[in-house]
Nucleic acid binder design. Structure first.
Lengths: 191, 191
DNA sequence: TAAGCTTGCCTAAGTGACTTAGGCAAATCA
DNA sequence: TGATTTGCCTAAGTCACTTAGGCAAGCTTA
């Protein structure tokens, strides 16, 4: 049979695009194979199994997102950087719901490049916080707070939790970022 | 055959316990049936299908969690109430990982009692915020910020994101609650 | 170019989770 | 007690994932 020119990278991108279109939870090997014009078992020449492919999608998504964030915060600091970080994050989730769902996967294997991308995220957040001059361990706590807040907000928004109230999610988002900025500029000394 | 005394409620509790033990993602009708001492198809006399059972587990978890939170914040206000709220939330997730994972399920059907329980959560958060006297729309924004922060933090902690750094998650949690309190007491006026 | 090797894709087939159809017997009720 | 309802069963089908084994495309080497 004619070769289809597949590779782990091609499969990952195809799967990621498919996830954005139909939802990460409906992503199936059959659908990926169909889109690539091959039969299902052929995929096993390029990826170990279905779970490994999903982890690859997660890794690619985290990496893309880190690139976007790096781009957004470059040359900014303080509230400006925080806001750019948050917008880049939220915009990515809106544009790529399937990829974003993949990035939220439960426990990514430590050796995957998904884990490496996750590390880039915390490094980027640390860089962003330099303008607030928190010192340790406050900086670590702040990294975690920011990560938690953006993840939680975007997750709840995507899940429709904000749809039953007239207040625009966008407005709440801006307010949350402002509130976070207040907290960072007045970081509590305690313990 | 002897009747096993099943019902939707019994199945939901059994499934929830099982999810806490083996993980929500490994929850299967076969495992629930085995634990109940019946065959798989028998479950369909009590629940519509596997998805409906999972939604029931999510609803029960959200409801339990709301009870715990209501109990924790009763008679408290300000930082004290916020801290109690946050602890109740995080403790529940630690004690009941399977139930908590269920509660984070993507898009709960609006008519389910899961949705009703979700509403109780926002009402409880609103009550908690009375001590901060924010007014609208700030209060709605704050409800969303608190919900996002606790969900995001506990999700990341459960996913192992905080395991690679010596700083204790508990300490970061306390700091995050303090920072949130600062933000609420100095809520930005803007826009 | 031909022989040989590697490897990408195939068909066939098996497993596990979910689901439906249809039957029998236990519990309920007239 | 006889009739009805209903809870549980077996049988069987679907779908997603996976493995085994085969064939031929395309590279390697002479």
């Amino acid at each position: 049979m004619a070769r289809a020119g597949l590779s782990a990278e091609v499969l990952t991108t195809t799967a990621a695009d498919l996830a954005d279109e139909i939802g990460f939870d409906r992503l199936t090997l059959g659908a990926v194979a169909r889109r690539c014009g091959v039969k299902e078992p052929s995929l096993y020449s390029h990826v170990e199994n279905a779970h490994a492919l999903r982890v690859r999608v997660a890794g690619a998504a985290l990496s893309d997102l880190a690139d976007r964030i790096a781009d957004a915060v470059a040359g900014r600091s303080g509230h400006d950087a925080l806001s750019a970080f948050a917008s880049a994050y939220r915009d990515y989730a809106a544009e790529h719901p399937g990829r974003f769902a993949a990035a939220r996967m439960t426990t990514l294997p430590p050796e995957s490049d998904a884990a490496a991308a996750a590390r880039r995220h915390s490094d980027l957040t640390r860089a962003l916080l330099r303008g607030y001059a928190l010192g340790e361990p406050a900086e670590t706590d702040a990294v975690r707070l920011i990560g938690a807040m953006v993840l939680g907000f975007v997750t709840l928004e995507a899940g429709g939790s904000y749809a039953h109230h007239p207040r625009e999610a966008q407005a709440s988002w801006a307010a949350a970022v402002d509130a976070l900025d207040v907290a960072l500029r007045n970081w509590p000394k305690g313990s």
